[in-house]
Amino acid sequence: MDKFRLIPPQASTSAHQIDWLFIALVAIMLFFLISVFFPITWFAIKYRRGSNANRSNPSHGSNLIEISWTTLPVVLSVALFSWGAVAYYHIERPPPNALEVQIVGKQWMWKLQHAEGKREINELHVPLGQAVALTMTSQDVIHSFFVPAFRVKQDVVPGKYTSEWFKATQLGEYHIFCSQYCGTEHSGMIGRVVVMEPVAYQRWLTTGEAGESIVVSGRRLFLDRGCSGCHALNSKFHAPLLEGLFNKPVPLSNGETVKADQQFLRDSILLPGKQIAAGYDNIMPSYTGQLSEEEIMQLIAYLKSIADNRSPPPP
């Protein structure tokens, strides 16, 4: 791991893309450096005071030259910008069937949870060659989940979900850093990603205390915390049915329509009055402070699992 290297291990698909872009940038930098340093040293030697170089009718400017070394950088800029923007667009859009992992950043540790229920602290086991999508939030301050080997970084902001994804292409262990300053032990908030063969990954998932899957614990919370008291067919309270809700358009009481994505579900749990569904009044109590970030994620995972079947779950 510690032989001297100039660039970090290229362990993800986007790593190659970004390294190529960086090499192109370095090439352009060298071009501009040479086109500035060479003339300076040449002029400094040729036209040093006392040298008998020809100094007749020196020119003090020519719009042609000025325009040329304005348009050339602008053209290069637009080209570099678009290459960077296209690569950025891919980095920011997780593929649809990615492996779901939920991360909660807390002052100076990472709490990770796989969809199958396996929980980890400061460690992330992922299968080789499988896209992994991370859904992240923070319990306190802004952190940032940074894996240099995968060239991915995304701030983890309290109060909202941020996401990033990668597809590991090389086995081994790689650093996880927190790259947004978050307090005293900011430099201690590190961990490691372990890329394993898919088979070994499946075995790892089931060994050890394989806790109940997120969906199961989400459903348990749905019942224990009284959600099913209102959000059920036979409930005497007038509350929207949550089956088949996830990612569907929801008409609001103020006339707008929003998609019921993770952020909408989270806000509805914590700030129920923020966006009230049309035809319902604001009677839902706020769960701020009563549900931890992990529990909210589990509830949302449960709501996602019942997104496709119309029939309500067996009581």
Partner: peptide, 22 residues
């Protein structure tokens, strides 16, 4: 000149994802 040119690296979206805050 070196400082300004490396500014192009951090202005490029994809590269800045990797080098931001480093």
């Amino acid at each position: 000149t070196i400082g300004g040119l490396t500014g192009l690296c951090v202005a490029t979206l994809a590269v800045d994802v990797h080098v931001h805050d480093t």
